[in-house]
Design a protein around this nucleic acid. Structure first.
Length: 117
DNA sequence: TGATTGACTATGA
DNA sequence: TTCATAGCCAATC
């Protein structure tokens, strides 16, 4: 996909990155924000996720906050839906938090060295 | 049109 | 270490 910064909006960039998160891996709002060039606008990533629920191909459950806390689980209909999905992919959850977070963390800036946008 | 909000993060006390 | 505060900026009210 030959995306251009101009043609894709913030949300679309976020979605493009989230879609590339491999199964069983997670990433953070801040990492996504930084990767798409929005610096510290991690809140916008969260806002984008708010609208991501309308897209079935956006694995929003693989996006957690910087310490691996499932801060957005309340937006999945059920409070346990998010961790259920993650555990189903091999990510252990305890107390709404990702266990072995550093092992599961997926940083787009490292994994997607070549910026596709 | 302007103020408020938010699935965040970094920093300082 | 824990708590409070200040930036972030698009969408909503």
């Amino acid at each position: 996909m030959n995306y251009s910064d101009q043609t894709l909006g913030f949300f679309d960039k976020v979605y493009a990155v989230v879609r590339q998160i491999p199964e069983g891996r997670v990433t953070t709002y801040g990492d996504i924000a930084r990767y798409i060039g929005s610096g510290g606008s991690s809140r916008m990533v969260g806002w984008a996720m708010n609208g991501a629920g309308r897209f079935p191909d956006i694995p929003a459950h693989r996006v957690v906050n910087r310490v691996g806390l499932l801060t957005g689980k309340m937006h999945f209909g059920s409070t346990i839906a998010m961790e259920q999905m993650l555990e189903n992919e091999g990510v252990e959850i305890k107390n709404d938090k990702v266990l072995h977070f550093k092992k599961h963390i997926w940083v787009p800036m490292l994994e997607l060295k070549e910026n596709p946008f």
